[in-house]
Simulated assay, not measured.
Amino acid sequence: MKYIIDKNIPLPLYYQLKQIIINLIDDGVYKEDETIPTEHELIEKYQLSRTTVRQALNE
């Protein structure tokens, strides 16, 4: 469950995505000075709206 969005739990989707990104950084999947996936890539991968992805990235 570490890297998946669960639309059936009460946690907001943007928060779940934010936590996934943080976990990926903490686990070394994304290294320092390395870019994370683009907004569009995150939308496609996690099947989320642009607004949700933007909110997660802004936080």
Rank of each mutant, 00 (worst) to 15 (best):
I9C: 14
I9K: 13
P10E: 09
P10R: 10
P10V: 06
L11M: 10
L11W: 04
L11Y: 09
P12A: 10
P12F: 08
P12C: 08
P12G: 06
P12S: 09
P12Q: 04
L13P: 04
L13C: 04
L13D: 02
Y14V: 00
Y14P: 06
Y14D: 13
Y14S: 13
Y15R: 11
Y15C: 10
Y15K: 14
Q16E: 03
L17H: 07
L17K: 01
K18A: 09
Q19E: 11
Q19L: 12
Q19V: 11
I20F: 05
I20D: 01
I20C: 06
I21S: 08
I21G: 08
I21L: 15
I21Q: 12
I22C: 13
I22K: 15
I22N: 13
I22V: 15
I22S: 15
N23Y: 06
N23S: 12
N23Q: 09
N23M: 06
L24K: 15
L24C: 15
L24I: 10
L24D: 05
L24V: 10
I25W: 06
I25R: 15
I25T: 15
D26I: 08
D27T: 06
D27H: 06
D27A: 11
D27K: 08
G28C: 14
G28H: 09
V29W: 02
V29E: 01
V29M: 12
V29D: 00
Y30V: 13
Y30L: 08
Y30D: 01
Y30T: 12
Y30M: 05
Y30N: 07
K31C: 10
K31T: 11
K31N: 12
E32G: 12
E32T: 15
E32H: 14
E32M: 13
E32I: 15
E32Y: 14
E32R: 14
D33R: 10
D33S: 12
D33I: 07
D33W: 07
E34A: 12
E34Y: 09
E34F: 11
T35Q: 06
I36Q: 04
I36C: 09
P37K: 04
P37L: 02
P37H: 01
T38S: 14
T38W: 00
T38F: 00
E39D: 02
E39I: 12
E39M: 04
H40L: 08
L42I: 04
L42V: 06
L42A: 04
I43R: 05
I43S: 03
I43A: 05
E44R: 09
E44G: 05
E44W: 00
K45T: 09
K45Y: 03
K45S: 00
Y46A: 01
Y46L: 02
Y46E: 01
Y46P: 08
Q47C: 09
Q47N: 14
Q47I: 09
Q47S: 14
Q47L: 06
L48D: 00
L48A: 05
L48S: 03
L48W: 02
S49N: 07
S49M: 06
S49W: 01
S49Y: 00
S49R: 11
R50F: 02
R50Y: 03
R50N: 07
R50A: 10
T51P: 00
T52M: 03
T52A: 10
V53G: 05
R54N: 12
R54Q: 11
Q55T: 14
Q55C: 12
Q55I: 11
Q55L: 13
A56P: 04
A56L: 04
A56N: 03
A56F: 03
A56R: 04
A56V: 03
